[in-house]
């Protein structure tokens, strides 16, 4: 896709490997600014709108922090404002209105395809912060950044995606993005929550080595990256069935006993029972770094979109 200035960020599928690497390198430079160790005002005078039709406080605050760390400003429309705007109004009209308040728009919306539609009704860049069960590209970029940064690269990694692989959009997007790299993948999910067929088909078509299993402890010793997601109770009609699965897909010291020293464990947070608190103190735990990385990655994207590449 090449140049970033003025570009929409709608789907990770629009990002080539080169594009991803540009973002990762830019994000690395943003880390000290994100930590407040260095000051930066490159986005001074710019205004970002955050338009959230459903609550996602972490994502919204992460964008706000990113914009403000670069000296820019934010106009926030939370779910309440968004819904009062929207009474009977189309998203297309809302976007045309918000356009006049800002230089770029971050959109979170409960319906799939909302961000692509929004982008058609404004000249301003639109950043998709999650559309229904669809895309959430900045989450994927921060996941990639964490793997890249913690390992010093993505190529060569043996990566397992664990948990609810069927409904978890995070793992779908991450899988597609990882196919641009030279990795080996393992999908670990309980029956009924396996990765959708078309995702697995895509992985194989890209020539990426892929293993599919229900047995988590067996694959752990071989892994460089273990990415676990939440299994939602609501997916199970039977609470006992849920309890059984939740117990099986839980990372604790016992599961990690045979792991490589360098194994990193990631989780998009918030976690419930998927990772025992005892894991937090181990060198494997990188999910808090991952959460922090949302800020430098979004800073990188904003600064690229506004044409002020570092």
């Amino acid at each position: 896709m090449g140049g970033f200035t003025g570009r929409d960020v709608l789907s990770i599928a629009d990002f080539s490997r080169k594009d991803i690497e540009v973002v990762l390198k830019a994000a690395k430079k943003m880390v000290p600014i994100a930590r407040g160790e260095k000051a930066n005002r490159t986005l001074e005078g710019r205004i970002l709108s955050t338009l959230f039709f459903e609550p996602s406080t972490r994502t919204r605050l992460s964008f706000e922090s990113a914009m403000k760390r670069l000296g820019g400003d934010v106009v926030a429309f939370g779910p309440i404002e968004a819904s009062s705007i929207v009474k009977g109004e189309t998203l297309a009209d809302t976007i045309r209105m918000v356009e006049s308040y800002s230089d770029a728009i971050v959109l979170r919306h409960p319906q799939e395809g909302a961000a692509r539609l929004a982008a058609e009704f404004t000249e301003r860049p639109v950043i998709n912060a999650g559309d229904g069960a669809g895309q959430h590209p900045t989450q994927t970029l921060l996941d990639l950044f964490t793997i890249w940064d913690q390992r010093g690269g993505i190529d060569g990694a043996k990566i397992a995606l664990v948990g609810d692989l069927r409904y978890g959009r995070t793992v779908h997007s991450l899988t597609y993005a990882l196919c641009s790299f030279d990795v080996e993948l393992t999908f670990v999910a309980p029956a009924g929550l396996q990765m959708p067929k078309e995702v697995a088909e895509h992985v194989r078509a890209q020539g990426i080595p892929l293993a599919v299993t229900e047995d988590l402890p067996k694959v752990v010793p071989n892994l460089d990256v273990l990415y676990i997601t939440r299994i939602q109770k609501e997916r199970f009609p039977d609470p006992q069935e849920y309890a059984k699965v939740a117990g099986t897909y839980r990372i604790d010291a016992e599961v990690l006993r045979g792991a490589k020293k360098s194994l990193i464990v990631l989780h998009p947070l918030p976690r419930v029972d998927e990772i025992a608190p005892e894991v937090d103190a181990t060198p494997h735990a990188r999910y808090f770094e991952q959460a922090f990385n949302g800020v430098p990655v979004r800073m990188a994207l904003l600064s690229l979109i506004f044409g002020g590449a570092p």
Binding site: T90, L91, A92, Q111, G113, A114, E120
Partner: peptide, 13 residues
Amino acid sequence: ANPNCITNSREPV
């Protein structure tokens, strides 16, 4: 066919 697709809402597309 996706009922939650934005094109199935009242949008001008």
